[in-house]
């Protein structure tokens, strides 16, 4: 079957979709958006969390056909979402179109074995002046906070956590620790022991408050 929906502000279409495919599979394997992760495919880990019409869901448990006509935001569109949110908060714009291209650059199917993260990309990120720059660099505040707080190790849980944490901060800009734990209780992490994830969300909340006070 054919499925059409919007991903990160961009209309997308997938053909020859098997009816049993999940939204996660379509995103990863048909639309070239592998940022949402396939850790359990049974709704027990949150690695595949995306926003479906604004609501965080496990994309592994959404049948592809159920996404028809809906709006999906994945980790690839998080920076753009944050930017639009910031603009909206600042009283401008509301067009909702994907302008930054953050959702498109990694969206094209790769035409050869994509191999591994390229060495030069790592090297760019490795420069202290780059990686320690706060805020900018085309990242959503929650993404930057995860890097800064050391909340990323293997990183496989990271995309889902980012989508969930970003949505929580949108609803609840000043969460208590218990609020953070509850909001992220659907996202498993096996590397960090969660402490630095807590730090990252606190950091993002604090930066967000600082930004708002400015």
């Amino acid at each position: 079957m054919r499925v059409s929906f919007t991903v990160n502000g961009r209309p997308q279409e997938a053909d020859d979709v098997w009816e049993g495919e999940s939204l996660l599979y379509v995103l990863r394997e048909r639309l070239g958006l592998p940022g949402s992760k396939n850790a359990c495919e049974q709704g027990e880990c949150g690695s595949c969390t995306v926003r479906l019409d604004g609501v965080p869901v496990c994309s592994c448990l959404v049948a592809a056909g159920q996404a028809e006509g809906r709006e999906v935001v994945t980790v690839e569109g998080l920076a753009d979402l944050a930017e639009r949110r910031a603009r909206r908060c600042a009283g401008g714009d509301g067009s909702g179109s994907c302008a930054s291209g953050a959702c498109g650059t990694s969206g094209a199917p790769l035409d050869e074995a994509p191999g591994v993260p390229a060495g030069d990309a790592w090297s760019r990120a490795a420069r202290p002046q780059d990686s320690q720059a706060g805020g900018g660099g085309g990242l959503a505040p929650i993404q930057q906070a995860f890097i800064d707080a050391g909340a990323v190790q293997c990183g496989f849980c990271t995309p889902g956590l980012l989508v969930a944490a970003d949505e929580m901060l949108e609803r609840n800009p000043d969460p208590s620790d218990a609020d953070i734990r509850e909001a992220l209780s659907g996202n498993l992490c096996r590397c960090t022991g969660y402490e630095k994830i807590m730090d990252a969300v606190r950091l993002a909340a604090a930066r967000q408050a600082e930004e708002a006070a400015r």
């Binding site: 990863r28 994945t74 199917p109 050869e112 202290p128 990242l139 993404q143 890097i147 995309p159």
Partner: peptide, 25 residues
């Protein structure tokens, strides 16, 4: 020093290519 991960940006943007993300024509 607590320098930050060089792969951090790729990992938070979803661009970091895990083994399950591989794709080939």
């Amino acid at each position: 020093e607590s320098t930050l991960r060089p792969d951090g940006t790729l990992k938070v943007t979803g661009e970091f290519a895990y083994s399950s993300d591989m794709w080939h024509e």
